[in-house]
Amino acid sequence: MVRYIIILILFLGCNDGQNQTLPSSTGAHSEIVVVVDDSLWDNKLNKTFSQVFNGPIKGLGKIEKEFNIIQINNSEFSQVFRRHKNIIIFSDNEKTQNDKWAKDQLVIQLNINSNTNSLLETFQKVKSIFVIDELNYLRKKTKKTSNKLIENQIKKRFNIEVLIPKKYTNIIMSNELCWMQYNPKEKDEISQILVFTVNEAKKTIDNTILNAVDSVFFKYIKGSAEHSFVKIEKLYNPHIEQNICRGLWRLENGFMGGPFIFKTYFFDKKTVISLAFTFSPNTQKRDIIKEFEAIL
């Protein structure tokens, strides 16, 4: 019995050491390496796969793909590609593995011949796994250095848990509104996070919620010109899915605009809204919006 315990301890110790010695993963978060031979990719998979993974991010003024796809043949799947953060392999097996060849890595093997679902259904399920994994990674990464003092104040005042990256500065902290801002001198970007309460019990995002957001914009977020203020862009219908709303804002009597995203937290007698929006002209917004979704 003692002998088996010693062997088990040695085995677990070896596994821990192996995990600790894995190299860091490479590649961008929203990038997926797809390992499949050209013939199968071109003749059967590419169209449906691209339809699912290359779809546009909702709520942006310009089209930006949710994921970038790098397709390679099996013969090209070298050690360099094995360290990539996100990998899909079409093979004879069905398996999902974390940290297979590198840290913070997700590898999914698919056997489309044994799958009873359609290609569209299969790819949609796989995509949802990568979306959740990416948001969890971004949240975990932010949490390591986030502003715990502000987060605790928000938790105390509004009873929700949001993450505030350390780069944000607190502007207002009250029971009515928490307002944080990121406005770096070295680049043309302003990002804001707002947390506030709507004193109505709601179960869905409706015009009452949207009007409440506009009211907070009007009261607090002003432009430099007289009578200029931020408002939801009415020419673009916000995209609402469960408790998340995505859309565009613009500066009334001004020339600024950009995307916003907010989450609603429904309580018995009130609704708490955590909202983030950015002004970042001439840059891709995908990474900013995905960070917002992860921390709100």
Rank of each mutant, 00 (worst) to 15 (best):
I89W: 02
S228E: 05
D37E: 07
I154Q: 03
I9K: 05
D42E: 14
L235G: 05
N211A: 11
I5R: 10
P281D: 10
D287P: 00
I57M: 11
N243F: 08
K219C: 04
N98L: 15
N93A: 09
P56T: 11
I232D: 02
N243E: 11
F266Q: 07
A276C: 10
I193T: 08
L10V: 12
G27R: 07
Q71P: 12
I89F: 03
I288E: 06
F53E: 02
I70V: 14
I7G: 00
F130N: 00
P23S: 04
T278G: 08
E151A: 05
P259I: 04
F53Q: 03
I88P: 00
E31V: 04
T116D: 12
K234R: 15
Y182V: 03
L40P: 02
Q109F: 14
E176M: 07
K47P: 00
A276K: 10
I7E: 06
S280W: 09
S118L: 08
V107I: 14
N93W: 05
K269H: 13
A201S: 15
R246M: 06
H239C: 01
S280R: 15
E233T: 11
S128E: 15
N159A: 11
K95P: 00
T271L: 05
G223D: 03
F218P: 00
F218L: 11
F255C: 01
L40N: 08
A28C: 03
I129R: 09
T264A: 15
Q153N: 14
K263F: 09
S118D: 07
K166S: 12
E134V: 02
A225G: 04
I232P: 07
I57K: 02
I108E: 06
F218Y: 14
H239I: 15
I240K: 06
A294G: 10
S228H: 05
V34K: 06
T197D: 12
F267R: 08
L296A: 03
K185S: 13
I164A: 00
S191N: 12
D92S: 13
A212N: 11
Y220E: 05
T278A: 14
I70L: 08
K144V: 12
L60K: 07
L194T: 06
F53V: 04
F49L: 07
L275A: 00
Q71H: 09
E241C: 07
S114L: 13
K185N: 13
G59I: 08
I240P: 03
N243K: 08
E76L: 10
N243G: 00
I209M: 07
V195C: 05
F266R: 03
S78G: 01
G17Q: 11
F49N: 02
